[in-house]
Amino acid sequence: MVNRIVVGAHYGLRDWLVQRATAVIMLAYTLALVLFLLVMPSGFAGWKALFACSWVRLLTQVTLLALLLHAWVGVRDIWMDYVKPVGVRLVLHVLTILWLVSCFIYSVKVVWGL
């Protein structure tokens, strides 16, 4: 195979948009959580009451998904910038995906108390 510089993967815009949209979701959730913390009773009872609501769990789960997608684009950017051998980069991409998917499965267990 000749050693040519190849570009044109055509997913630049999609990932850029995903990173911005997920950032907005995380910001909104953080602001909402701060507001809740200000009004809810402190201690275990308060937290338990808050997470008894299904929609709080749902919003938390959506935000965690946003966080993982955001992290995927960011971490992949780091590998793309600093790791030049394609084989090593591919391995790092796969390991990152495995780690993030594991985090997601574990987050489902934690948020929904399974």
Binding site: V7, G8, A9, H10, Y11, G12, L13, W16, M80, D81
Partner: peptide, 8 residues
């Protein structure tokens, strides 16, 4: 429209 050419 590429992760490298513009979106770096």
């Amino acid at each position: 429209e590429d992760p490298y050419r513009l979106f770096r």
